[in-house]
Design a protein around this nucleic acid. Structure first.
Length: 343
DNA sequence: TCTGGGGTCCTAGGACCC
DNA sequence: TCTGGGGTCCTAGGACCC
């Protein structure tokens, strides 16, 4: 009997939450992103299915989304609202008795080992119904024999469906797909693999281990091939995950050229980071400043905190010391400050 | 009408040590 | 004279994900 793993993925989550509190938007193209002004710098967080029909999707610049669908309703990101909706969904999932590993606002893995079922699809439908009844949100559920397969399966289940992906149908479903279909392979790695003559999941599963290790490193190489087999022994874990870092960054509507204003902005960001880590029990060991110069290239510099500290004055001083390591001879479109926390 | 903001993890290269 | 072979730590950057 396989230990079933479910991957629950909310359908158009952010847009769906917005529609719930504004029922008049149902059925309309809705685009959530930035501060809701599609003429400004920003990207789409989530587009409703109606908006996706116009070619609008996550990660797309808001200005492009506006061009493609000028009649869409553009809304600002309201993180607290999504957080609250997410909390309700995750609690519903826990109440089913499964072990729940949360993966962001709108996704979770469920280990249902403790629940006897000969019909995992029926159980998935029950969970889907429970989420819908309690939150009025639809989700799709991937049914797998491990996390990786469950994760990929949920995409095939959308919208509002259930799809099973296991060792048995892995080759049929995934073998012919591009390597980018795997969770952990993005456009860069797919391109690099293609240059080695490896285009599909099946080809990657059969690739030469030594060649992969030579190109991607002794750990990453074998890991890539392992991904293509669909096998995954990692457990679903509900253990609390201590954050490694906390950061704040912002893109400016107009680039900043004046070093004095850059300095002031870094101080403000450092102050916000200090406020954020005030609630953490562990102090920061390092502060990293990120600068994105025009047109679009990014550099970072960091400063160690010895001894580790959470004090706002120390965080700010470290951020300014890190900023001093940059040559500010070009205008800046983004600044960021990140504190790395003691492990 | 260019390209958010929140993160995590891995790697390469230099410093440093024995 | 013409320079080893580990090992670890630190830093910057890259890649990926939601």
């Amino acid at each position: 009997v396989p230990g079933w793993v479910f991957h629950v993925d909310l359908d158009q989550f952010i847009a769906a939450v917005e529609v719930l509190r504004r029922p008049e938007l149902r059925g309309l193209p809705v685009v959530v992103g930035g501060d809701g002004d599609p003429t400004k710098r920003g990207v789409v967080s989530t587009a409703s299915y109606e908006a996706r029909r116009y070619g609008v999707g996550s990660g797309m610049p808001l200005r492009t989304a506006y061009k493609r669908c000028p009649d869409a309703v553009f809304l600002p990101v309201d993180a607290p609202a999504y957080h609250e909706a997410s909390r309700e969904v995750m609690q519903t999932l826990r109440d089913t008795g499964a072990v729940v590993e949360v993966l962001g606002w709108d996704e979770a893995f469920l280990d249902i080992k403790g629940i006897q079922t000969a019909d995992p699809e029926a159980h998935a439908r029950d969970i889907q119904r429970a989420v819908l009844d309690r939150t009025a949100l639809w989700c799709s559920i991937g049914v797998g024999d491990n996390k990786h397969r469950a994760k990929l399966a949920s995409a095939f289940a959308k919208p509002a469906g259930v799809f099973r992906l296991t060792r048995e149908n892995w080759r049929d479903v995934m073998g012919h797909r591009p390597t980018e279909a795997l969770w952990g392979i993005g456009v860069k790695t797919a391109r690099k693999l293609a240059a080695l003559g490896i285009g599909t999941v099946e080809e990657l599963a059969n690739a030469d281990a030594a060649q992969l290790a030579a190109s991607f490193g002794p750990n990453t190489g074998p890991w890539l091939r392992h991904l293509a087999t669909g096998e995954d022994a990692s457990p679903v874990s509900d253990a609390p995950y201590p954050p490694r870092s906390r950061g704040r960054e912002e893109t400016y509507q107009e680039n900043i050229a004046d070093p004095k204003r850059i300095r002031e902005a870094v101080v403000r960001l450092a102050q916000r980071v200090s406020d954020d880590i005030d609630g953490e029990e562990r102090p920061a060991v390092r502060v990293v400043v990120k600068v994105r110069f025009a047109p679009f290239f990014t550099e970072t510099h960091g400063v160690a905190l010895k001894p580790p500290t959470s004090a706002a004055d120390d965080i700010t001083a470290a951020a300014l010391a890190a900023l001093d390591r940059f040559t500010l001879d070009r205008s800046v479109r983004l600044l960021g400050v990140r504190a790395e926390l003691r492990r």
